[in-house]
Amino acid sequence: MIKFKEFTIGLLIFLWMIASFLVWWVLSGLVEPPSGNLVPPKIRQITRQAEALIYPYVWRQYIFTTE
């Protein structure tokens, strides 16, 4: 049986880690990194096509117009 405390801690850490990764990934498309950090543009160009299928229209518009 799953312990409630353990499950909650695990879930919170899971969300933190996933959120960190997504922020890192999405930020790479939103800002122009001054030192070439974050995700290289070529990789983002490829994944953007897949991301476009997932993101809601408003987000997509924002991402595409600011990138």
Binding site: W16, M17, S20, F21, V23, W24, L27, V31, P33, P34, S35, N37
Partner: peptide, 17 residues
């Protein structure tokens, strides 16, 4: 994640994660 002028580089996102 900061991208401030003159910041020039970040700590690894893994440290944050």
């Amino acid at each position: 994640f900061g991208q401030y002028p003159m910041q020039d580089g970040n700590l690894s996102v893994l440290i944050f994660a």
